[in-house]
Simulated assay, not measured.
Amino acid sequence: MTLLNNDQENVENDSAEEAPRLSLRAAARSGPEPLRAADGLWRKVGHLLRRDVLGIAATTYLVLLLLTTVVGSFVLADSARNTNLHLRFVPPLSTQYGWEYVLGSDALGRSFLAQLTVAARTTLLISIGAVIAAAVVGALIGTVVGYARGRLDKVAMRIADVMLAFPSLLLALIVLYTLGAGLGSLILVLALARIAMYTRVARAETLAVRERVFIRASRAFGAGSLRIVCTQILPVIANPLVALATLEFALVMLAESALSFLGLGVHEPDVTWGGLIAEGRNYLQHAWWIALLPGLAITLTAIATNVLAELVRKAAESE
């Protein structure tokens, strides 16, 4: 009887010791809690959209804007470049010169519909490029320093504080003066101005995630820091970063338009909405549409993006 009792106790002890290992192994393999979070975000955004009329209108506008920009910028590319001084300042809704002049013409007789469409392509390309670049670099830096902690974390946060305190317009002047105005320079300067924001958000989210069970399980089974950061942490913290990027798009677009209006943006043959406003301010009395229409496009795009960003934020917070 004594031997049987001892054997039973040994079996129970072995089972008790093995249970945490099995639990850790299951957590490490089930892992990607990460992937479930990423999938759920867009399902929740779609669910919120079905109950939000303003959200549906904003999403419809943005989809139409993208389709018009992609298709129209190729169809109307020649009309945006061809000048005809006999058709200077044709007013909007004029049908006698063809559908291309439905929004009038500019000081060189170019179709303003074509100008507006091509400008939309450049503005969106710069804004999307700057947001993606800032989000990727900022997320990587914030995740690494948040996971590593220590002196690297302190140095990165002090640099982020300096970047956030540094006037973005002055930074733009320095970079654009050094590199010269252009598409790449604008994307670079706008991305540099926003990297610190993504870094701080990614770091905060990483600090909240780094001690979860599946992270500790991965460490216990020998996963390297780089693998944990790339496959375990980044997918989990992606949702708040996506919400931030959606909101930042409108701010970056407005910043780009301001720089273009001041003459620090792209130059001919490229054109942006901000550049069209700068051109149209000289003709406000007799060609008001040159400044009004791109300004209206910027306003509607910013409002639609902010409405969509609010829905993404709500969906991310409910994860």
Rank of each mutant, 00 (worst) to 15 (best):
S218I: 00
A134V: 07
L226I: 03
N282P: 06
L113V: 04
V131R: 12
G180C: 01
G280N: 15
A243D: 14
A148R: 07
A130R: 08
L103Y: 08
S257K: 00
P235A: 12
Q8T: 10
A297V: 02
L234M: 11
A26V: 03
L293N: 04
G280R: 15
E279K: 15
G150N: 00
V213L: 11
S79K: 09
P91V: 04
L108M: 14
L48D: 05
A278V: 03
A172K: 02
P92H: 05
K154I: 06
R227L: 06
A172H: 03
M157D: 14
E248W: 04
G129E: 01
G31S: 12
W288M: 11
F214V: 03
A119R: 04
T301E: 02
M1G: 10
L140D: 09
G184W: 13
L113Q: 08
S185L: 14
V102L: 12
S127P: 00
T95V: 08
S23L: 10
G46N: 05
L113P: 06
L170P: 02
G138W: 06
E279N: 15
S23H: 12
D161G: 14
L192S: 11
F214D: 11
I141Q: 13
L65I: 01
N5R: 05
A172L: 07
R216I: 02
L176Y: 01
I128Y: 10
N306R: 03
L4H: 12
T272G: 03
T122K: 00
A160N: 15
M253G: 01
E12M: 09
V213Y: 10
A120H: 00
G104K: 05
I298L: 08
L234T: 09
I174A: 14
L169A: 13
R21Y: 10
E268A: 14
P20T: 03
G55S: 10
L93G: 03
F166M: 12
N13W: 02
F89S: 06
G150L: 00
E310S: 07
N6V: 05
G146V: 00
V145Y: 00
E205N: 15
Y283F: 15
W273A: 00
A165V: 09
F261V: 07
T231M: 10
A196Q: 06
L3P: 02
V236A: 10
R21H: 09
E205I: 07
Y61K: 00
T69H: 01
E319T: 11
N282H: 15
P32D: 12
L35S: 13
S111T: 07
T117G: 05
L93M: 08
R281D: 13
N282Q: 15
G129R: 06
L48A: 09
A255R: 02
A196K: 09
Y283V: 13
L186F: 03
W42Y: 05
A77K: 12
A58T: 01
V45F: 06
S225A: 08
V63L: 13
I141E: 15
I228F: 00
G222H: 03
V144E: 06
K154D: 12
L67S: 14
